[in-house]
Write a protein that binds this DNA or RNA. Structure first.
Length: 851
RNA sequence: GGGCGACUAGCUCAGUUGGUUAGAGCGCCUCGUUUACACCGAGGAGGUCAGAGGUUCGAAUCCUCUGUUGCCCACCA
């Protein structure tokens, strides 16, 4: 029996991968004393099978690892899988939708469990795909981003940042997706250009321009530029204006952020629904008044907007504009106005800025430790501690890093690492005295007031304690001890008493307010009212308790045992930003010390900000060292029409399917051949087929060489089993592996010289990350120099007894060396042939690189 | 509004610090079934390197401008 005429990858690949695994070829322990070389695999998302895009990173990283391994280094490629927080949540919610279910109706624990099972299933699939692609990673060290020991490290970092003053909680407008009902980071929004009408609205003596008239109900002021001459006389004055829901009063404030050239140079300030307005407002006042929140979490108007309550933003806009026209405050509409709006990068819905209390990472600030996230990262790059293989990504990185704002890491979803913070509910007074006042108190109760009035008889006694709650935030902010209770009627309430928590100028207003709170009751001037006079005591602010995951027994400040955990989870990138050290610190003892900082981070450029930037910041912060010395960013895989591969377009090439048809080696070679760092990779079936042909060429070169050197027979007898990897029964012709000392023919000399310079060239290319160049050089040499020229020439030389021996030597030596050089690119076919060579000692994957 | 790329053969792309006659794969044309391979071999056609200007002994490569095209970032209400 001879070697088959064509190479059949399906017969070899599985067998060879298992053989490598069995021989522990992927483990760095193979060379205990060698220099370490480590790549952390970008963990594939465990929410879908991999596609050809993933095959790029497998190919490139495996290529580097195999090369360095053959170069004699203790090479570790550390695999993993990513729970991929929000991404997976989105995928899973779609799945639920198809089943007619809704995540908000499913209890947290059950939903989490279902998603856990779902990701575990996908994780198995991706592991198999990685193996099929020939990934020579160390499976014993595989990590999942939700492994308990990883979570522990994430908690440790969070606490460290908090203690250092670099993590804080703040109430402010955040990017809110009304569909997914969670906040998003600035990176998770996508800006799109839109043509929206710009409305010019009269505000008393002023006119302002806005695209969002529906948020008018949440206005707190009107702002102008302090230097704007037109409006000097209004600054700090109060102006009266006509509004849809009745007369309005606004203070005119001056702020630099207002561009006098835009619109009329007058801006309405809506702190709850616009981040810039919030900042303006903060410079003048502090709190966002509760009634100024006019849009809710579903993107509908709140009850503060009266008859518009319940309408969606766009519906409300139309109606509001109509009304404004009616009452004559709409001056004009500029319908040619173009601007950009933020949308959710997953569902495309308009992002609604909503005020929320969230955890933020201060990226520009210096902590107590003296460390600062973004500045330190920039410095490390500047000092070349991290080098970008493609220069232009360094520019992009710098630009981004210099302009980033604080990072919101709270997400209102269940899939992820729960934020390890407990809040003291401080409910003691209620347990003791059963007050139950909290839910019904009006919000306008302040600490310098001492009276509040109620329509309802709460049956309180003097000396009772009541709690005051901010109904917007659902938070108790203080307690009152009742000193006196008076019973009176609405008309007798002293409207001028400054001690009242709520003040109305006229009886009508008071009645209106009462009606709003008690829509079920008739309120007349004769209606009974209770006036509670109390002593106010601000709630002792118990600070949030940051732990390493465990629930504290009690609040260390007030001793209260009623603690509740923050319902939110971390932005998935907050935890994956710690991946390089989190993995190495939890695999095997000594790994971190040995392999950190890792050699290179190889991933797609689309996650440069999401992931690479965060790893540099958090890695530096936590370990004092950069997480990797180099960054290699590959391009996106596109089809031959330059289309991005995506499921919705239906142009996804399934790597397993193609591997089945053409072989893994063909795909891998197709993905590197003629490509360049950072540029997109265009792949087509024709290209893969071409590389399959190349694999076959290599196979046939080997077939010829083995036939001509008459050593096939002994190994052929055992073909089909793994026996041919055993050295026994092999001829003792190890010497013919050696390079001829002095080539006897011109052809010999020529091919050997070419081979020498090829080795040098491949080394140089690989060390400079010019994989595409190396691949085509190899292709060229093996096909056109070795096969087309030398092998043809050898047919003559083998006829001649004088040159036969030397020709055999050269054939074998050239084959052997070619296989070594080619192995990182096409591991399967090279290993398979290698196993059939005379003088076989150990697998090609762990053989020495040619010199 | 800022920034970053791309433009080389019919198609998809290489081309290192400037240096012979600018390359590959696929496709196309001619010939060939010689005992490694038709998933092949031999040969061939096909390019004003987007355009203009500049630097240089010499430019696809460096500089400037223009055009076409793609992408990223950004708190103009």
């Amino acid at each position: 029996m001879k070697l088959s005429k064509t190479y059949d990858p399906s017969k070899v690949e599985g067998k060879i991968y298992r053989f490598w695994e069995k021989k522990k070829c992927f483990k760095p322990e193979l060379k205990p004393k060698a220099k370490p070389y480590c790549i952390i695999m970008p963990p594939p998302n465990a929410n879908a099978p991999m596609h050809l895009g993933h095959a790029v990173f497998v190919t490139l990283e495996d290529l580097m690892i195999r090369y360095k391994r053959m170069k004699g280094m203790a090479a570790l490629w550390l695999p993993g899988a990513d729970h991929a927080g929000f991404e997976t949540q989105v995928v899973f919610e779609k799945k639920l939708e198809k089943q007619g279910r809704n995540r908000f109706e499913i209890p947290r624990e059950i939903l989490f469990r279902e998603m856990w099972d779902f990701t575990q299933e996908n994780k198995k699939t991706t592991e198999n795909q990685l193996k099929k692609l020939g990934a020579s990673c160390d499976w014993d060290r595989e990590k999942f981003t939700l492994d308990p020991d990883i979570i522990k490290i994430v908690y440790r970092t969070f606490k460290k940042l908090y203690d250092d003053g670099l993590i804080y909680r703040q109430y402010r407008p955040v990017n809110w997706c009304p569909k997914h009902k969670t906040a998003l980071s600035d990176l998770e929004t996508k800006y799109i250009e839109k043509n929206d009408p710009l409305y010019y609205i009269k505000y008393g003596p002023l006119t302002l321009a806005t695209v969002r008239p529906e948020t008018k109900f949440g206005d707190t002021a009107v702002a102008v530029n302090p230097k704007d001459k037109r409006y000097q006389k209004y600054i700090k004055k109060e102006i009266k204006a006509k509004g849809i829901l009745g007369p309005l009063k606004f203070k005119v404030i001056a702020d630099e952020a207002v561009d006098p050239k835009f619109g009329t140079g007058v801006v309405k300030v809506t702190p709850a629904h616009d981040p810039i307005d919030f900042e303006i407002w903060q410079r003048h006042e502090k709190e966002i008044p509760g009634p100024c929140i006019v849009i809710n979490e579903s993107g509908r108007l709140t009850k503060e907007t009266g008859k518009f309550a319940g309408l969606k933003v766009l519906e409300a806009r139309e109606k509001v504009v109509e009304e404004m026209k009616k009452i004559g405050i709409l001056e004009k509409i500029d319908s040619s106005y173009k601007h950009t709006i933020a949308t959710c990068y997953k569902c495309g819905n308009t992002v609604e800025p909503l005020p929320k209390e969230q955890w933020f990472v201060a990226v520009n600030k210096k902590g107590k430790s003296g460390k600062a996230l973004a500045p330190d990262a920039l410095k490390a790059v500047k000092e070349k501690k991290v080098q970008f293989v493609t220069k232009r990504f360094e520019k992009i990185f710098n630009h981004w890093m210099q302009n980033i704002r604080d990072w919101n890491i709270s997400r209102q979803i269940v899939w992820g690492i729960r934020i390890p913070v407990w809040y003291c509910q401080n409910t003691k007074p209620f347990e003791d005295k059963k007050m139950g006042f909290a839910g019904n108190i009006v919000p306008q109760v302040f600490k310098n007031k001492t009276k509040t009035y109620r329509l309802r008889d709460h049956c309180f006694k003097v000396s009772d304690k009541v709690a005051f709650e901010n109904s917007q935030k659902g938070e108790i902010f203080g307690y009152g001890t009742i000193i006196e209770i008076k019973k009176t009627t609405v008309e007798k309430v002293d409207l001028k008493d400054p001690k009242h928590g709520t003040t109305y100028k006229k009886l009508d207003e008071l009645i209106l307010a009462f009606k709003k709170h008690h829509p079920d009751k008739k309120v007349t001037p004769k209606t009974l009212v209770w006036i509670y006079i109390y002593k106010f005591e601000e709630k002792k602010k118990c600070s949030p308790l940051i732990t390493l995951g465990q629930k504290p027994a009690q609040c260390p400040i007030c001793g209260d045992k009623n603690l509740s955990q923050d319902p939110d989870v971390f932005d998935t990138w907050f935890s994956s930003g710690q991946w390089p050290f989190a993995t190495l610190q939890t695999t095997k003892p000594g790994d971190f010390e040995k392999f950190y900082p890792t050699e290179i981070m190889e991933t797609g450029w689309d996650i440069l900000f999401f992931w690479v930037a965060r790893m540099i910041m958090l890695g530096l912060y936590e370990t004092g060292k950069v997480p990797f010395k180099k960054v290699y960013l590959h391009g996106l895989v596109r089809d031959k029409d330059r289309q991005k591969m995506s499921k919705s377009k239906g142009n996804v090439i399934d790597p397993l399917g193609v591997a089945e048809q053409y072989g893994t080696d063909a795909i891998r070679m197709a993905l590197v051949f003629g490509t360049n760092a950072g540029n997109d990779i265009i792949i087509s079936e024709e290209k893969i087929r071409g590389m399959r042909n190349f694999a076959n060429k290599v196979w046939n070169v080997a077939r010829f060489v083995l036939m001509q050197t008459e050593i096939v027979a002994s190994s052929e007898a055992q073909s089909g089993s793994q026996a041919h990897w055993k050295a026994e029964g092999r001829t003792n012709k190890a010497h013919i592996f050696e390079r001829q000392a002095s080539p006897k023919t011109i052809a010999d000399r020529k091919i050997l010289q070419k081979l020498d310079s090829l080795i040098a060239k491949i080394d140089k290319d690989l060390n400079n990350f010019r994989f595409g160049q190396a691949a085509s050089d190899l292709y060229d040499f093996i096909w056109h120099d070795f096969a087309d020229k030398y092998i043809e020439e050898s047919k003559n030389q083998l006829q001649d007894e004088k040159t036969k021996q030397n020709t055999q030597e050269t054939l074998l030596y050239t084959l052997k060396t070619s296989l070594k050089l080619l192995h990182p690119f096409m591991p399967y076919v090279t290993e398979e042939i290698w196993g059939r060579l005379p003088g076989y000692k150990k697998p090609l994957i762990v053989s020495d690189w040619p010199k």
